[in-house]
Write a protein that binds this DNA or RNA. Structure first.
Lengths: 136, 136
DNA sequence: TTAATACCTATAGTTAACTCGAGGTCAAGC
DNA sequence: GCTTGACCTCGAGTTAACTATAGGTATTAA
């Protein structure tokens, strides 16, 4: 079975080898095997697992909680409920984050048009008839 | 003109007074006036400005960059272009973040249904005919 | 055979964004 | 007059997630 070195995996996942070793130290990669002298050998399935870890990280989940999930995976079927609940919770969290970003986007777009108008006029004074605001 | 104390503003914006003082120390609130003995007096417009700061923060912008923007605001019309460009850049960044979260959401939803099926079956083995994966 | 290169561990340092404690001022209420 | 509570500054401490360094081993290339 084909295996990959830590630097190959780092390149593939756009991480540094430092980061991967850090994740390992934090217990996120207990499944990665080693050679007799200690060098990590990543399997294809390990890379897939790391992609799931990256996915969880991109939802803003802290590493310690991701470790809980990894531990549950090793515990087998008795933790199916926890894992299901975790993903439902992640789903709700991501939905909330998207909603928040969309709300943020409204203000940003308002600022874009505000500054477009000011720039075309050459001065912010063009907005003086708006309710007074110091910072737009 | 009505003014607000730091704790009133903290409550309104869901921040702590520590955080507000920290922002001030970092130069995000040069416009907030003080009483003779040093107590901050927040105007309505200061609160509006802080909402813009919170908006920028929620786009992931670091405090030091937000400070640049605040400085530009104090510099007047000569910085209109920078401020416009900054908001265009924020807009692009937020769009990218939403797109990223939507991609994340796909995997999360896949995991939700994966675990729903496993949970109903009572075992993860129900997915054994899928391509072999260690971590789902 | 030696020199470069990729790997390893352990440990220390960095950065951002808070968070808190000590020590002090000041206005209001008893 | 004295206590309480909100405010202040300054500086130290915290936390997460890296990031880097030192010192060492093993494989490969000339």
């Amino acid at each position: 079975m084909k295996t990959y070195s830590i630097s190959e995996v780092a390149k593939e996942l756009n991480l540094t080898v430092y980061t991967l070793r850090y994740y390992d130290k934090e217990g996120l990669m207990p499944f990665v095997e080693r050679t007799a002298n200690g060098t990590r050998l990543f399997k294809e399935s390990d890379i897939e697992a790391l992609k799931v870890i990256e996915c969880l990280k991109s939802t803003g989940m802290p590493i310690k909680e991701i470790k809980n999930f990894i531990d549950w995976c090793a515990d087998g079927d008795s933790t199916l409920q926890q894992r299901y609940d975790m993903f439902l919770e992640r789903k709700a969290s991501v939905e909330a984050q998207i909603a928040e970003l969309q709300k943020t986007m409204e203000l940003i777009e308002h600022k874009c048009s505000y500054y477009k108008i000011a720039l075309d006029a050459g001065t912010e004074d063009v907005h003086k008839q708006d309710k007074i605001e110091i910072l737009h």
